[in-house]
């Protein structure tokens, strides 16, 4: 286990050390102490290492992650795991705005609540939130799965493309072109797998599925008010 204390080590040194790890590294476990809400912690990683951040992080923790597992023992600031490509990011606490924004792959698990715009413009990432998510979540989400064990805020899935949204609790309101859809066996299977992989204690059958009504896919004047 390598330990880096952000109280004494500059951010650049921390990220340079983590980014220098290759797929063949034997230094697979890293502990980061004293994050204190600092920004851009453990960004741009590209190796199958396990990074534990012992406390709350600021903006863009684990941004653009590939392969690595990043575990934040605390809350995460805006844009956690933004544009993640692969790997796993786990947040023990709450996540601020834009969690998993534009993520292309990998798994983001938020054990607390996520704030607004969770999964905005997601492009293949899977996101599991144990708690609630805020307004405008999954705005323009393209592909991937967003699973919410709690409630969803206003305008869920506005202008949605092909991402799948699964919500167990209530939805304050659906955004333009987002509708409830039938939960078919293949969706139960997807959900079961995601719940298992994220360690979430919930039954797939208790969720509702939301997706795109696809009425905005090609412009028509009758839908002009939805834009």
């Amino acid at each position: 286990m390598q330990t880096i204390d952000l109280a004494t080590t500059p951010l650049r040194e921390l990220n340079a050390a983590l980014q220098a790890q290759a797929a063949t590294t034997n230094q697979t476990e890293w502990l980061i102490e004293n994050p204190k809400g600092a920004h851009a912690i453990a960004v741009g990683l590209d190796a199958p290492i396990e990074v534990t951040v012992n406390g709350p992080t600021g903006y863009y923790c684990a941004g653009m992650n590939k392969q690595a597992t990043v575990h934040v023992k605390g809350s995460a600031g805006p844009g956690v795991a933004e544009n993640m490509m692969s790997g796993t990011v786990v947040i023990d606490g709450d996540a601020s705005q834009y969690a998993g924004a534009t993520g292309h792959g990998g798994l983001l698990v938020i054990k607390g609540n996520a704030s607004s715009r969770c999964g905005i413009s997601m492009k293949g990432i899977d996101i599991v939130v144990y708690g609630n998510i805020g307004h405008m979540s999954a705005f323009m989400a393209q592909t991937g799965n967003l699973v919410v064990l709690g409630d969803a805020g206003a305008n869920l899935g506005d202008s949605l493309y092909e991402a799948r949204l699964f919500v167990r609790g209530s939805v304050k309101s659906l955004g333009s072109d987002c509708v409830e859809k039938e939960m078919r066996p293949e969706h139960i299977a997807i959900l079961k797998d995601l719940l298992e992989r994220s360690g979430a204690d919930a039954k797939p059958e208790d969720f509702k599925r939301y997706g795109s009504a696809r009425t905005l896919y090609n412009f028509h004047v009758d839908h002009a008010g939805e834009y």
Partner: peptide, 18 residues
């Protein structure tokens, strides 16, 4: 672009995460 073929591509006017 991770989009279905042949649909209108709507682009956002603000960045998604700042």
């Amino acid at each position: 672009r991770n989009l279905p073929v042949g649909i209108d591509q709507r682009s956002a006017c603000r960045h998604p995460d700042w």
